[in-house]
């Protein structure tokens, strides 16, 4: 990607940060592909491996390999995470690998906002916003749920959580996360 491209590509909030008992960072732009296909589609596992380097995730799981990942979104939908600049090539690879198979692969990198919530008590921030039992969140589990009034998905990884929501509500979600992380409002 040229420098000119870099300056004109902006994530939803331009990398906003907030700190409290947990730290919040908006990251991105992050490459993402929505891949719709049933798990038994011929060549699917190979196609996903070619793009993300991971195996096909089981239900409600996300497989992470370095800066790439493949998450299970629904029985016929996967979320492929990869560097923003790699998306076009990845879509071409998917088209090639899945040629002739019923599927839909589409770039959604720009439709999303991605946040990192970090710190020992990062989970408490999510406990204030999502009706999900975090104590039952398993390692490598991708949880799609409600974040206050909007849809979101998150998974635990080193030092905290990664949370994905729609781009248009990035400001709202940043507001939620920073309110929920305010010092003095620790839950336990």
């Amino acid at each position: 990607m040229s420098d000119a491209m870099n300056t004109r590509i902006t994530s939803a909030l331009g990398g906003a940060v907030a700190s409290g008992f947990a730290s919040i960072r908006e990251i991105g732009p992050q490459g993402m592909i929505t891949l719709r296909a049933k798990p038994d589609v011929k060549g699917l596992a190979a196609a996903v491996k070619a793009v993300t380097g991971t195996k096909l995730p089981e239900a409600r799981r996300i497989e992470v390999a370095g800066d790439k990942a493949a998450g299970w979104m629904s029985p016929d939908e996967y979320l492929l995470v990869l560097p923003y600049a790699d998306v076009a090539a990845a879509l071409a690879t998917l088209a090639e690998e899945l040629a002739g198979q019923h599927h839909l692969a589409v770039d959604v990198s720009d439709a999303r906002a991605v946040f990192r919530i970090e710190g020992a008590d990062a989970g408490q921030v999510l406990m204030k916003l999502a009706p999900a039992d975090l104590s039952e969140l398993e390692p490598g589990e991708l949880r799609r749920t409600r974040i206050a009034q909007v849809a979101g998905a998150f998974w635990a990884d080193e030092g905290g959580f990664t949370l994905v929501c729609f781009r248009s509500v990035a400001g709202y979600v940043m507001g939620l996360l920073s309110h929920s992380a305010k010092p003095g409002s620790e839950l336990f």
Partner: peptide
């Protein structure tokens, strides 16, 4: 055999 994707916010 139909798939849909809402790409409203992609663009």
């Amino acid at each position: 055999q139909v798939y849909t994707a809402n790409v409203t916010e992609q663009f």
